[in-house]
């Protein structure tokens, strides 16, 4: 029985051991001066900086600014992206009209527009909001659109035969069939939104965790830089894990053999 349990958790155990080895090697390299700790920092230094910053009100202000940018930009992208994706998927002519713009925006990293956003909205919170929104809205539109397009033609035909209204068809067939795709889009979009926060704050900002990283970098405070990077890693992991769970939950709704 014990062997079974061991076998079951092998991936986690090996993974944890590898992480532990990495962290110990890092710490050792800094302690025995294999590399200058000023450049590579060390896990214990990062931990002590983390404890220090926990008490620092400036740090919490940075966190608040970054999360405000992230949350509002992301929510705005959801509020615009889902209806737009549904409209593009449902009405052929809307797709013809908006398709070229979305394709072009999809081909370029939206962070390219950062200088223009700063020009329009200044270096405060609004330019980051705009770049987070732009980054997140495109994947949401595209996957919602893909979801509508993969709805089962059979169901649609049945609905039509029985004279279902557009509203009814939409509510009982399109929306449930599209939900899993929307959540996939939301998962991708969260990564894009986080990227927007980082780039926006590195580019020009007065506050935020990205701004903190940039300043710490200029001052050669490597421990702080690493702490900031780890904070983003942690946020990214938490957000994607939650969204992946939700996505999985709705996976059963995905229409099978979906071709129209």
């Amino acid at each position: 029985m014990q062997g079974d349990a061991l076998q079951r958790y092998t991936p986690q155990l090996v993974g944890a051991a590898a992480l532990l080895a990495f962290v110990s090697f890092w710490e050792a390299a800094a302690t025995y001066k294999l590399a200058d700790p000023m450049f590579i920092s060390s896990p214990s230094r990062i931990a002590s900086v983390a404890a220090e910053m926990w008490e620092d009100p400036d740090f919490w202000r940075d966190v608040k600014v970054s999360s405000t940018e992230f949350i509002w930009g992301y929510l705005a992208a959801i509020a615009v992206g889902i209806p737009l994706g549904l409209a593009i998927g449902w009405y052929k002519r809307v797709q013809y009209a908006l398709g070229p713009f979305i394709d072009v925006l999809n081909a370029v990293p939206r962070v390219t527009f950062m200088p223009i956003m700063v020009l329009w909205f200044g270096i405060g919170i609004w330019s980051k909001f705009a770049v987070v929104f732009l980054g997140a809205v495109i994947p949401i539109i595209l996957s919602t659109y893909a979801g509508v397009r993969t709805n089962e033609a059979r169901y649609l035909r049945v609905a039509k035969s029985f004279g279902a209204s557009q509203m009814k068809t939409f509510k009982s067939i399109i929306l449930p069939g599209t939900a899993p795709y929307i959540f996939t889009g939301l998962k991708y979009a969260s990564g894009r939104a986080l990227l927007g926060v980082v780039v926006g704050e590195l580019y020009a900002a007065t506050a935020g965790v990205g701004h903190m990283i940039a300043q710490a970098g200029n001052a050669f405070e490597t421990d702080r830089v690493f702490f900031g990077v780890l904070l983003f890693t942690f946020t990214g992991l938490v957000v994607t894990t939650i969204l992946a769970r939700i996505e999985k939950r709705f996976d059963r709704w995905r229409p099978e053999g979906a071709v129209r």
Partner: peptide, 12 residues
């Protein structure tokens, strides 16, 4: 690494 916005490594 995949969950981190990798550009955050830039100052480093």
């Amino acid at each position: 690494l995949n969950a981190t916005p990798q550009v955050a490594f830039l100052p480093l």
